[in-house]
Design a protein around this nucleic acid. Sequence first.
DNA 1: AAACTGACTTTTTTACGAATTTGGTCAAAT
DNA 2: ATTTGACCAAATTCGTAAAAAAGTCAGTTT
Lengths: 207, 207
Amino acid sequence: MEKKSDKKLSDILQAARRRFAKQGLSKTTMNEIAEDLGTSKAALYYYFKDKEQIYREVVASEQQQFIELIQGLLERKLPLAEKLKIYADHRFTSFRDLVNLSKLSFDSLFRFRPVIQDLMKEFKKKELVLIEKILEQGIASGEARNIDKRFYAELFASSMAGLRLGSLRKSESDKDPSPASLKNQRAQMLTLAELFSNGISRKRSRV
Amino acid sequence: MEKKSDKKLSDILQAARRRFAKQGLSKTTMNEIAEDLGTSKAALYYYFKDKEQIYREVVASEQQQFIELIQGLLERKLPLAEKLKIYADHRFTSFRDLVNLSKLSFDSLFRFRPVIQDLMKEFKKKELVLIEKILEQGIASGEARNIDKRFYAELFASSMAGLRLGSLRKSESDKDPSPASLKNQRAQMLTLAELFSNGISRKRSRV
DNA sequence: AAACTGACTTTTTTACGAATTTGGTCAAAT
DNA sequence: ATTTGACCAAATTCGTAAAAAAGTCAGTTT
């Protein structure tokens, strides 16, 4: 069975990640990725089935980074309110820094290639599970009322997505959002997390 | 100066509204609108400068319907929590029934024609003012803390938009959302309104 | 004069084949 | 096991001509 050097695999993914981040999926060519690595296009096909698989792995790895961040959060002993705020903060930071994940969630709105839709749908499902787990813990610990986890997780996820989109829209068309706009987006997400945790809390707390 | 029969003006707008609702802006032709009215294309240009103006007036009138609904709400003596819930309900209902307004908010995400962006930007600005007024009233009455109205209004508006989008995405691609999905969307919006009003309330209430 | 029309011009969209680019394969080389 | 250049096939871009739609206007009707 073939072993296929891990080093080479990750080199390819790294080069591809940079290209996808800069140019997106369709405008990145296999030749460009190969040239960035000083190798030939055909070599790429020794390691990956096709361009789509490279893209999938690049995005999946960024998704995984976020997911692991949250899984780490799930293992910590923290008040529910804290967890939700940290979740909001991680989500903000990840979508700011993981360019391909960020681009994906944007593209999924109007690029109809199945890859995009599939990857996005997958990510949403995973995110929902993570939020449900946080709520689960909060209910188990008695911090939260016995709410419908699925319903509230969807509510939280969609609202967070809306906040991100609302900020994107404000920045003029194609330009990156300004630091001020990012700061505002983060503040909104944290505030939403607070509203949310207060709303499902058993105690009647105020921040 | 020309008077231009109001009857004819509104007849044209009504025919155009139906066409735009069914086919969207770009796929609706001036000839179709004229034929629906049993008149000639040239006649339309006697009443309207161009196709874009007809579209603007159609959308503006649907926006106005929603705005007047909310302005009516602003004049009622109701608890802040009630007002926010009714706001959420009106928003849900309006976006479900006013097809061109609904289409606009969808198109604004990926149709780059300036008309679309302009009309959407205008609507968002107006919606923000209305939400701010509701918050204003809540602060004045002592029901709400002295929060940053603009900040919270944006938070509320973007979250509501996110809930709508989250529901749209779940329904498979082009089809209309199922009744069940709509019901869920409405429930989410009402719940968000509750979370929100509890969160900004001076009292520590629970529903 | 206000309301409207058919014929007309201009602008935009569509259709489509050729040219080019790109994705993907493979036998041969290292 | 790994890499490559040559090659094919699929997709994209490009130029352009035909079709369709937007928009104009002199002149007619009411």
